[in-house]
Design a protein around this nucleic acid. Structure first.
Lengths: 211, 211
DNA sequence: CCTTCATGTTTCCAATGTAAATTTTTCTGC
DNA sequence: GCAGAAAAATTTACATTGGAAACATGAAGG
């Protein structure tokens, strides 16, 4: 039923809308993406999505959820086979950047508090899974000096901040490079040289310190 | 003429619109900010701005420009009086964060490629001036190991990325803390411990390496 | 005084998201 | 099988938005 439908009922509208949304997102840009356009691409009326999503925001939330899944996958893909320590760290961060630069509009949507609902259970699960990849890498990292202040997940936040910040500055065109797009951007361009501890496990912050 | 106008001509509409926009921005949020609402607050028709700005995007660009001026001012305000080295670095970054968290909607607007025109000369000047503050601080920084790869302005990018990333993750609610807003967020929470060189001057990248 | 032109207004239009009422299909209990 | 309920889509309507065009107003300078 994913074909050109002749029947009144689409049969698989929910995932079809998400797919169409993912496509249109990068084609038209986040701010120009409209519910009506997504519905039109699937071939249904513009009010049809109401039966499956809670308005435009609900649909965008579902799109962002799929985005986080791919985001995590892209990081994992890079990490696989890499030995622990620096290689694995850089591979994960490279995956983070690769995804962001390949799907800039989706990436911006994913981190927009206004456009998608970060209380949504599915989004939370996907988002957290993605974060866990980075967090797993940050585990053995020794960025801090001993007397450094802050929470125990300070290192995770540092790592996340720097990769995320770099990704966004690149996406928004604040940072540009000579080679227009020839050589891919690498995390090595911004990551400081780390030291490593031996597998100490930190308590799980889940992005929030409200213990 | 900033008062309740009785005359047909406002007399000072351009700055009045920017001021009203800055106010409404934080009140209603970036995505809900409308040209009509801004015009209404000033007390003119919704097409009046057309005479002073190139559409909504032009107005938003002017608002963002003022944002960058205040952003730079907030950083400079913190830096003043601080001795060079670590204190000055942290003061500048604290200013960066303080501004972002006090004006989250404005901050998001400033770095939106889509919503404002980053080719605009005024915006470019203000944006660059703001960047220069951070860059000046990064001057004597020694974050890199000797064998670190990348461009000469690598350290600037590292610093900018980490502060910018932290600011955005906080704004978008991705990172939260126990004390709901009691203690201000500090750059010391994410900045690694730096070493310092003695005032070596780096070539000016101006955010782009297209030499 | 009278023309010129910048500045605002009015009116109109296309696009958007949402809601309500309606139609079509599928499912379910008998 | 089949009637009725529920699900899935459609049509219609509406308020808001940004923008374009034509017009109104008043200030400035001959």
């Amino acid at each position: 039923m994913t074909e050109n439908r002749k029947s009144y009922h689409h049969g698989d509208l929910k995932p079809a809308l998400i797919t169409a949304g993912l496509e249109l997102l990068e084609e038209t840009g986040l701010e120009n993406l409209s519910l009506r356009a997504i519905a039109a691409r699937v071939g249904v009326s513009h009010t049809a999505p109401k039966n499956h999503f809670d308005g435009l925001r609900g649909l965008l939330t579902a799109i962002a959820t799929e985005g986080f899944r791919r985001h995590a996958a892209e990081m994992r893909r890079g990490v696989e086979g890499e030995p622990p320590g620096k290689p694995r760290l850089h591979a994960a961060c490279d995956g983070y950047l690769r995804f962001a630069l390949a799907n800039p509009e989706l990436f911006r949507l994913m981190f927009s508090k206004t456009l998608c609902n970060h209380q949504d259970p599915d989004l939370m699960a996907a988002s957290r899974a993605s974060y866990e990849v980075l967090r797993g890498i940050a585990q053995g990292l020794d960025w801090d000096k001993a007397d450094a202040p802050g929470a125990p997940w300070r290192t995770e936040w540092m790592l996340w901040s720097i990769v995320h910040g770099y990704a966004l500055l690149l996406i928004e065109g604040q940072i540009a490079r000579a080679g227009d797009g020839a050589a891919p951007f690498k995390a090595s361009e911004i990551l400081p040289d780390f030291g490593y501890r031996d597998g100490t496990t930190e308590p799980d912050p889940l992005r929030s310190s409200s213990a």
